[in-house]
Simulated assay, not measured.
Amino acid sequence: MAQDSEQFSDVVSRRKFLLTSGVAGVAGLAGCTGNSDTSDSSGSESNNGGNEGNDGSTDGNDKTTESQTLSGDIRISGSSTVYPVAQEVSRQFQQDHSEVGFNLTRDGSSGGFKNVFIPGDSDINNSSRPIADKEVQQCRDNGFEPVEFFIAQDALTIIVNNEADFIDSISLEDLKTIWSPDTAPKMWSDVNSDWPNEPLDLYGAATTSGTFDYFTEAVVGKEGKIRGDFEGTEEDDLIAQGVQGNKYAMGYLPFAYYTNNPDSVKALSVSEGGSKPVEPSLKAAQSGNYPLARPLFFYANMNKLQQKNHLQEFVRFYVNEADEDYIANEIGYVPSSKQMVEDNLNNLEAAIAGEYEFSR
């Protein structure tokens, strides 16, 4: 049975879920910072050792018992936000299964769906937003069911330059004014007369990114409706670098990438509807108090899950690892709860049996 991701399409229902999802204990998240290595400038990571042909089929060496060796290749596309999790989990899986090879790329959630996963070229697509209804239908039109796995949560972080001493917090309402194409202010002072009469230089996610989709809907209120005069990239470190080099810049990026650059930029607290500003943190994301808390997913091709034993075992491993402490301590996301792990394993078993059907 598919997990309900529709509740994340608006801010109110998202908070309700976060408050009741039973994510890893608050105390265990205190003081967490991210140290994951995502320095692959090419956007891909290829770990050879698999014995899979170019058509995605195995060579018959996949084994079905623990005493036998798993082999084959796994192609993972999609979100740069979820990439560090997939990178670390695949690294650990290879320690025990050296004959399984991985090809990981950072295509963006939307880019990965459109260009790689939906055409059937990847086994898994990471996503920093729920899969869209039209994308589900496109998968079905291509002969397979997308299987949803909700694995972590993020506190999307608004950043400014360290020398921007005129601002420490911002409201969702001011963010909307800044990023909406209907207003598109040129100067900081156009938004708030107490802010400097200096140009607003904006950095954010590329339009192929699930982070772009989430931010646009959560802040501006309409999918895809955002001003076009900003620097967009799939490389979150480049967003941090751009803001670091410009006193009057603003950007947004996943919390994990902010914690990897904690001294290079300043994170803003965020308020909504006159409420007290909330600092981005894993605890605030878990409680639902942070206005820009969001879910993270990966999606698997059900046909390939049924065909490939090594893919089944990797997804099982991925799901079970998603509630481990290192997801918070070393990467910087709120880990899965025990209930999320159980739901994900149920989805996996239903997919292997051919009984899974995606629904919201």
Results as ranks from 00 to 15, higher is better:
residue 185 P to R: 07
residue 207 T to E: 13
residue 189 S to Q: 13
residue 196 P to C: 07
residue 255 F to I: 07
residue 234 E to R: 15
residue 177 T to G: 08
residue 259 T to L: 05
residue 194 D to N: 14
residue 180 S to K: 10
residue 228 G to P: 04
residue 187 M to W: 13
residue 187 M to C: 12
residue 187 M to L: 15
residue 173 E to Y: 00
residue 246 N to D: 15
residue 239 I to L: 05
residue 229 D to L: 06
residue 220 V to S: 10
residue 251 G to F: 02
residue 180 S to D: 02
residue 264 S to W: 00
residue 233 T to L: 01
residue 228 G to A: 14
residue 175 L to H: 09
residue 196 P to L: 08
residue 204 G to V: 02
residue 225 K to L: 10
residue 220 V to A: 08
residue 238 L to S: 10
residue 180 S to G: 00
residue 216 T to Y: 06
residue 237 D to L: 08
residue 192 N to V: 02
residue 252 Y to S: 11
residue 228 G to Y: 11
residue 188 W to P: 00
residue 174 D to H: 12
residue 246 N to Y: 09
residue 173 E to F: 03
residue 235 E to G: 08
residue 238 L to C: 03
residue 198 E to N: 10
residue 166 F to Y: 09
residue 192 N to L: 06
residue 164 A to W: 04
residue 256 A to I: 00
residue 206 A to C: 10
residue 176 K to R: 15
residue 205 A to T: 00
residue 213 D to Q: 13
residue 182 D to Q: 13
residue 266 K to H: 15
residue 230 F to D: 04
residue 197 N to E: 15
residue 175 L to V: 07
residue 238 L to M: 05
residue 212 F to E: 00
residue 246 N to T: 04
residue 260 N to D: 14
residue 211 T to F: 11
residue 227 R to L: 11
residue 212 F to D: 04
residue 228 G to M: 01
residue 255 F to S: 01
residue 228 G to K: 10
residue 229 D to C: 02
residue 235 E to Y: 14
residue 214 Y to I: 00
residue 224 G to V: 00
residue 212 F to Y: 15
residue 206 A to M: 01
residue 233 T to Y: 13
residue 201 D to S: 15
residue 250 M to S: 05
residue 215 F to E: 07
residue 265 V to T: 02
residue 195 W to I: 07
residue 258 Y to K: 11
residue 166 F to L: 01
residue 216 T to H: 00
residue 266 K to E: 01
residue 264 S to T: 12
residue 245 G to N: 15
residue 266 K to L: 01
residue 165 D to H: 12
residue 211 T to W: 09
residue 193 S to D: 12
residue 213 D to G: 05
residue 236 D to K: 06
residue 222 K to Q: 13
residue 176 K to C: 12
residue 196 P to Y: 03
residue 202 L to Q: 09
residue 237 D to F: 01
residue 165 D to R: 10
residue 217 E to P: 08
residue 228 G to I: 02
residue 169 S to N: 11
residue 254 P to Q: 09
residue 213 D to R: 14
residue 169 S to K: 05
residue 207 T to Y: 06
residue 262 P to E: 11
residue 232 G to E: 11
residue 199 P to F: 03
residue 253 L to I: 06
residue 224 G to R: 05
residue 259 T to E: 00
residue 229 D to E: 08
residue 185 P to H: 01
residue 210 G to E: 04
residue 172 L to Y: 01
residue 232 G to Q: 02
residue 223 E to P: 02
